[in-house]
Design a protein around this nucleic acid. Structure first.
Lengths: 192, 192
DNA sequence: CATTTCCATTGATCTATGTCAATGCTATTT
DNA sequence: AAATAGCATTGACATAGATCAATGGAAATG
C-alpha cells in the first residue's frame, strides 16, 4: 500500500523508516471505478489524491454544458481542486476516473497535521507544487503562443502515455479545442 | 528597505525581529528603469524578484518575433523564470520593467540557504507558490472555457490596477489576443 | 451474441480572430 | 516647440476553429 506515493516522496526528499510509518497513519487508500466521481463541483474538496494506478481527470463545465479538462492525473501524479482543498470553499472542478483507479488520499486535516509535524512533508509539498507550477506555466505559454499543430505534437512527445490511454476528445478538451478540430489537426500532421 | 516584502511575508507567516534581521542579510535591493531588462532569454535566471514598487512583465518570443506575456508583476508580486531559477538552465522568458521599479532580490544561493536555515521561509515560499498556482489555474481555465469578452471582463474586475497602468497591447498579449482583436472586444463590451 | 453507447472522422457552413494597412492621438525625446 | 515614436482604433480581407449533421467502426453492456 502507498508504494508509489512513498517512492515518489523519496525521489524528492529522503525519509527514515520511522518517518514513513508516521506519515502512513495519515494516509487513506481508495479505489475508484471508471466514471466514478472523486469530487463534484459545489462540494468541498476534502482530499488531495495521489494516483497509484489508473487515470483521472479534473474538469469544469461551462454555461453550455461543455466539459473543459484542466488536468489529467495518471500514475505518480497528484490531483485535486487545490483552491477548494485549502479554503474549504465549494469546488469549481469535477474530478472523476477515466479508468479503474487506486488512490492514496490525504485529507485536509491530515495535510495540516503533517505540515506542522513533519518538516520533510512540507518540503515534499513545496517541491510538488513548484513542479506543477512550472509545468502549468509551460502549458499556458504554449497555449498563448503556439499554433494548435505544434501544441499537439508537443503534448504528444511530452505525455505519450496520456495520448495512448485517454480518448481523443478529452485531449481536445485539455487543449481547448473541439474533437472535430483536433481530428483535423492530427490529419494535417500525419500528412507531413 | 524591503518594507513591502516583509509586510507581505508577515501576512502569511509571523516573524520575530531576529528572524527578520537574519533574512534581511540575504536580500538585495535593485532599481530598474522603464524598459530595462531584469532577465534575458538564454541567460540563467539568478534572482527571484519581489516588486516593491513599479511594474514588470515576463514574456516569451515566438518564431515570428511576437511577444507573449506570461505574467505581470506589480507591487507585492513576485516575478522570475522559476524553472531557470531552480535548475540553472537558460531562461525561456524575458523580464523587463514596464515602469521605473524597485525590487527586492533573492539569489538562488540565498534562497537555498534560507530554505535550509529558516523553516518559516520555506512555509512562506510554499504559500506563495501555492497561491500563484491557484491563480494560474484559474487563468488557464478561463482561457480554455470562456469567450474573450468574458475573459476580458473577468481580468478587468480581478486586476483593475493592471488595466489602468499597463498599455492595452500588453493586456492583449497576456490574453493571447492581438491588439486589434482586444480593441474590438472592448468595443463590443462598451455597447452593452 | 445482440444491442447500445461511445468515439473518431468527414463535409458544409458560420464565426471569431489574425493580418495588413492607414489614421490620428498622445507621450516622449531632442 | 518640433519631431519622433508608441499606441489604439478602424476597415478590408484571409484563416483557423466552431458548429451541425451524418457515417461507420469499436467497445461496453445486457
Amino acid at each position: 500500500m502507498y508504494e508509489l506515493f512513498f517512492e515518489s516522496f523519496k525521489k524528492k526528499v529522503e525519509l527514515t523508516h520511522e518517518e514513513q510509518q508516521h506519515i502512513t497513519k495519515y494516509l487513506t487508500p481508495k479505489k475508484l471505478r471508471k466514471k466514478q466521481y472523486l469530487l463534484q463541483e459545489g462540494d468541498a474538496c476534502k482530499y488531495v489524491a495521489f494516483v497509484e494506478k489508473g487515470a483521472l481527470r479534473a474538469y469544469s463545465m461551462d454555461d453550455k454544458g461543455n466539459e473543459h479538462i484542466i488536468q489529467f492525473g495518471l500514475e505518480g501524479w497528484t490531483i485535486s481542486d487545490l483552491y477548494s482543498f485549502i479554503t474549504g470553499e465549494p469546488a469549481t472542478y469535477n474530478i472523476d476516473a477515466i479508468e479503474d483507479s487506486e488512490l492514496t488520499l490525504i485529507s485536509a486535516s491530515a495535510h495540516e497535521e503533517l505540515l506542522n509535524t513533519v518538516p520533510k512533508y512540507e518540503t515534499f509539498t513545496r517541491l510538488n507544487i513548484t513542479g506543477a507550477y512550472v509545468a502549468m506555466q509551460k502549458r499556458l505559454t504554449s497555449i498563448i503562443s503556439s499554433p494548435s499543430e505544434d501544441r499537439y505534437e508537443n503534448f504528444n512527445s511530452l505525455y505519450p502515455d496520456i495520448v495512448q490511454r485517454v480518448p481523443q476528445h478529452m485531449i481536445a478538451s485539455y487543449m481547448g479545442l473541439t474533437p472535430e478540430t483536433l481530428s483535423r489537426v492530427r490529419k494535417k500532421i500525419v500528412r507531413k
